[in-house]
Design a protein around this nucleic acid. Structure first.
Length: 707
DNA sequence: TCATTTAACGTTTTT
DNA sequence: CGTTAAATGA
């Protein structure tokens, strides 16, 4: 049996300890996916566990897909039952499956649609309108994320109402409540509901909980450090008497606390499952010694962390390089030239490189230059394929056919392509529809006869109803790809996007790709689910291209050469975390994750100045740079020819931390009038002006005059 | 009702 | 700076 071959002793121990709780503390690059895959293979091939009785949770769909492939090739040798695969997927995906099977017990219909971030925010907006709460004082986006937070902590509107102490919280609870009833009426679940409702379902019925507890003999969870309260609760419910639960994770790589993830879940695993078997994977197979050492030195500065020391037998390798650059354009140029020259001499291929950054906005400069220099690149994240307008429109049609109560989707497509159904007609329609208690398609059919709505709109609604009804019956027999084609043709959408602009072709192409994607799915619910749960990390890498992505998106990946750009205070660590020690530690972990993606070369850069918010800003070098230690770091070129800083006046080249102001100084600004300095933070001063408002200003730009 | 213009606004990270 | 949402006029 080759399943145990090629594993080191710690990995083998993790694979062969098949009963009872197991905690695998796996450092970066220690072969954790391999261990997990082999563990599953071993359970199936050597322990005789029925694959269907195994639940394996991964962080992304891509990870699940990869694991499935590796598992297939491992087990294939003696596994005749290829169709039988373990339950594999993300928490969200698993919950969808559970809810489709048993959701009806708590009133969740089988054909629910899944709302994404945009849908949720749009619905919040509608809820606020209904409650006549102005979106000037309270931002829908703020409410939307607050609702998400509440759901991740399993809090209901009533829970919030109970502890509401400020007007905002009361409003929040009210809007949340209305949002929930509107969402239910639409037959929809949002992202967080998938977890929340699955937990609620299992908690509501002891028999149901027992059914699934008995079903899953083995549970494995990857990236356990990034589980949130709802996911944790789900795990606790599903683990049965024999406690065959195996979690893998690394608290040093926990970077999703802003999404409700709680890495103390992994630190407390031993407490939750007493007597658990702990395996530490500390041998790193990915990076060279210098990279590992520098990354280690950065993470050491955190207080909230477990103790471990990764090691490698790979040798020191080249030192980590640090480049101080003039501005973000020069930074992009440095990266581009490094890549081009290495590819030109045949030392590397384009897909050996990854450029990592903290915020998506930073990709812009890189993209522009890469396009100019004809460097092929692939952007992970950013504007997702499924976020494009034309794609979302078609998806909305599909959703409406699938779930004819989905108002959100109907609102989106009612007048797309334009058919003369305006805001007033829509309002009348919704009023009438909810009074009659009909689903949207039926209501459309009947409103034409009711004489509520006049002229053109009335006629349009009638013909739209006919089209939708026909598509709906089609959906019972036809594959998703055919339905999409029918939508594009029958609704006049194809003609609608062909508006003569240069983007018309691109849109048509996108629709073609959508049909292609859909070919892979046999049923509408599978396709809609896949679309809804698709993540940016799930974009398949294709061909010889440099990869551009955020540090977050890089989790779990590796590249021979990694650039991390924007190593500046305010970017990494991000300025929004400065007053929170816990969040600062997360930034440090994020930096650690980025650094440990590199196999052979790691290049870091920071700039003297950078355009942010359309303003030039001057950020000090990131504190993480000085934490890396001197032995492993070599300082690279600090500028490139042509745009060298020495061409510039001295006073723009260097700045001191002393802005020449003190707290309490009276100053005059040409923009805001007179005021008093109330706070100083490096080059930024906060001024309270006589008008009453406070402003944070950069002393280099504001031209404040001392009085 | 729709298209064009104008204003505001936002940038952390995403299943 | 660049994008999207509201406002305005036709």
């Amino acid at each position: 049996m080759n399943i145990l071959e090629g594993l080191n002793p710690a990995q083998a121990e993790a694979v062969t300890t098949t009963t009872g709780p197991v905690l695998i503390l796996a450092g970066a690059g220690s072969g954790k996916t391999k261990t997990l895959t082999h563990r599953i293979a071993n359970l199936i091939a050597n322990e005789g566990v029925w694959p269907n009785r195994i639940l394996a949770v991964t962080f992304t769909n891509k990870a699940a897909r990869e694991m499935r492939h590796r598992l297939a090739s491992l087990v294939e040798a003696d596994a005749s039952h290829r169709d039988f695969m373990p339950w594999m997927g993300t928490f969200h995906g698993i919950c969808v499956r559970l809810l489709r099977i048993d959701g009806h017990t708590i009133g969740v219909g089988r054909n629910f649609v899944i709302y994404d971030e945009d849908d949720r925010q749009a619905l919040v907006k509608q809820a606020m309108k209904q409650l006549s709460i102005s979106d000037r004082d309270i931002k829908p986006s703020q409410i939307s994320s607050a609702i998400s937070n509440a759901k991740n902590k399993l809090q209901t509107p009533d829970d919030l109402k109970g502890e509401a102490r400020y007007p905002f919280q009361q409003h929040l609870a009210t809007i949340y409540d209305r949002y929930e009833s509107m969402r239910r009426d639409a037959g929809a679940l949002d992202f967080d509901d998938l977890l929340l409702e699955a937990v609620r379902m299992l908690q509501s019925s002891p028999e149901l909980a027992k059914k699934w507890r008995d079903h899953f003999e083995h549970i494995l969870i990857d990236e356990y450090q990034d589980t949130n309260a709802a996911q944790y609760q789900l795990v606790k419910i599903l683990v049965n008497q024999s406690k065959n639960i195996c979690v893998v994770g690394d608290d040093w790589q926990s970077i999703y606390s802003w999404r409700g993830a709680d890495f103390t879940n992994i630190l407390n695993f031993e407490r939750d499952f007493p007597g658990c078997h702990v395996v530490k994977l500390e041998q790193n197979y990915r990076s060279t010694g210098n990279i590992l050492e520098a990354a280690h030195n950065v993470i050491q500065k955190n207080d909230q962390r477990s103790d471990k020391k990764l090691w490698t037998s790979a040798g020191d390798g080249s030192p980590v390089t640090v480049h101080g650059i003039y501005d973000e354009n020069e930074e992009a140029r440095l990266v581009a030239e490094r890549i081009s020259s290495q590819v030109a001499i045949g030392a590397r291929k384009y897909d050996d490189f990854a450029v990592l950054y903290r915020t998506n906005a930073q990709s812009y400069t890189l993209e522009r230059l890469f396009l100019q220099l004809h460097i092929p690149y692939q952007l992970v994240g950013g504007v997702r394929f499924y976020d494009r307008k034309e794609i979302k429109d078609i998806i909305a049609y599909l959703r409406l056919i699938y779930q004819p109560n989905d108002r959100m989707s109907f609102s989106r497509i009612a007048n797309v392509p334009t058919r003369g159904i305006g805001a007033t007609s829509m309002e009348k329609f919704f009023d009438w529809q909810s009074n009659q208690g009909l689903d949207i398609i039926t209501a459309l059919e009947q409103i034409a006869m009711a004489g509520i709505i006049s002229g053109k709109a009335r006629q349009s609604m009638g013909s739209l109803a006919a089209i939708l009804r026909r598509l709906q019956s089609m959906a019972e027999t036809e594959a998703p790809a055919n339905i999409i084609e029918a939508i594009i043709n029958d609704t006049g959408y194809r003609h609608y996007i062909d508006d003569g602009t240069p983007q018309a072709d691109e849109r048509a192409e996108n629709l073609g790709s959508l049909i292609n994607e859909a070919q892979a799915y046999a049923s509408l619910d599978d396709f809609l689910e896949e679309v809804a749960l698709m993540s940016s990390a799930d974009t398949t890498s294709d061909g010889q291209k440099v990869t551009l992505m955020t540090l977050h998106a890089a989790k779990g990946l590796e590249f021979p050469v990694v650039f991390i750009v924007g190593m500046e205070e305010g970017i990494i660590p991000h300025s929004r975390v400065f007053d929170s020690p816990a969040e600062l530690e997360e930034e440090r972990r994020l930096c650690y994750v980025g650094m440990t993606r590199a196999r052979e070369e790691l290049h870091l850069s920071y700039t003297h100045s950078r355009m942010q918010f359309g303003q030039r800003s001057y950020n000090p070098t990131s504190r993480f740079i000085s934490d890396m230690g001197e032995g492993v770091v070599s300082t690279g070129p600090t500028h490139l020819g042509g745009f060298a800083p020495q061409n510039l006046p001295d006073d723009e080249l260097f700045y001191s931390d002393e802005p020449g102001f003190d707290i309490g100084d009276q100053v005059r600004s040409s923009m805001f009038g007179d005021g008093e300095i109330v706070d100083i933070d490096g080059l930024a001063v906060t001024v309270r002006f006589s008008s009453g408002q406070s402003k944070k200003l950069n002393t280099q730009f504001a031209h404040l005059q001392k009085l």
